[in-house]
């Protein structure tokens, strides 16, 4: 058990290092995130000027939300990317055979690898645009250490939920041989229902409730609301519980799907 945990840490660490070798890409990405952060901030300022309490946010909440969104895009890998893309590529080339004969769990391996990647993206593509946003605008910050801790947990869970969704998309390549189509479709859903395009709290009436029950809400809306102090006390616990629930459901589904994929490859030939 201890050696397994140390393996996952080693995998996460190597994955972190792997992404850190591409510095130019990181700087270009930070620049892009910052520019988009500016554009969205000014858009939100205009919207909240018209309706200063839209979605229960004030204008500073909204601008903070915009920068949190930019910080989370790569950390959570909203559209796609990360370790799951490696898996899809390996299925396409057949290299997945090598992963299959190793005495380690495919799901554990890729999850560890994706968490390592997310760690790198949080410290670079997450933190840097956030600091830039903080220098330009007046933002809201977590009120106390407890909220910071809740936010930290919530970010990790945001990554695991997103990993679960992306893993299912990548695993479709076992049947379709190429996951590009599914990936594009999933990206549109994620973009819309994570609250990256428009905060879910702005959705009209019941659509907001539905959107906030879907797994994509765990990507951005939930961590952002924890940061902004919209969830307090038990409510914060429930919000984190919501993410835990989706993590468990999705990882279990991944486990079953991978077992089936494994069976398909092993029994029916790949």
């Amino acid at each position: 058990m201890r050696s397994t945990v140390s393996l996952w840490f080693a995998v996460a660490h190597r994955s972190f290092r792997r992404y850190s070798t591409y510095r130019a890409a990181t700087f270009a990405g930070i620049f892009t995130n910052s520019v988009f952060g500016l554009i969205i901030s000014f858009t939100y300022i205009a919207v909240w000027k018209q309706n200063p309490t839209a979605g229960g946010y004030d204008v500073a909440d909204a601008v903070t939300y915009a920068w949190l969104g930019q910080a989370m895009i790569m950390t959570v890998a909203v559209w796609s990317g990360g370790a799951t893309d490696d898996l899809a590529a390996r299925i396409k080339t057949g290299d997945v055979a090598i992963d299959l004969y190793r005495p380690v769990s495919l799901l554990g391996w890729y999850l560890a690898s994706d968490l390592g990647r997310a760690g790198y993206h949080l410290l670079t593509r997450g933190l840097a645009p956030m600091i830039f946003g903080a220098l330009v605008f007046d933002l809201h910050y977590p009120a106390n250490a407890l909220v910071w801790a809740q936010f930290a947990v919530s970010v990790v869970l945001a990554v695991t939920v997103s990993f679960g969704v992306r893993m299912l998309v990548s695993a479709s390549a076992f049947w379709l041989l190429d996951d590009t189509g599914v990936k594009h479709l999933a990206a549109v859903f994620a973009m819309f229902f994570s609250g990256l395009a428009v905060p879910l709290v702005l959705f009209p009436g019941w659509t907001s409730d539905v959107a906030q029950a879907l797994p994509w809400a765990a990507y951005l809306q939930v961590p952002a609301d924890i940061w902004l102090g919209k969830h307090q006390g038990l409510d914060a616990l429930a919000a984190v519980g919501f993410q835990v629930l989706w993590t468990v459901v999705l990882l279990l589904t991944c486990h079953l799907v991978l077992a089936r994929a494994n069976r398909k490859v092993v029994v029916h030939g790949g």
Partner: peptide, 26 residues
């Protein structure tokens, strides 16, 4: 297993790191 046309090593990592991962896997 050695597949001449595939690699069991990790593309972006130094050789030493691949071996260290294998040490933990096995």
């Amino acid at each position: 297993v050695v597949f001449g046309q595939r690699t069991t090593l990790w593309w972006d990592l130094p050789l030493r790191d691949s071996y260290d991962l294998l040490r933990r896997i096995y």
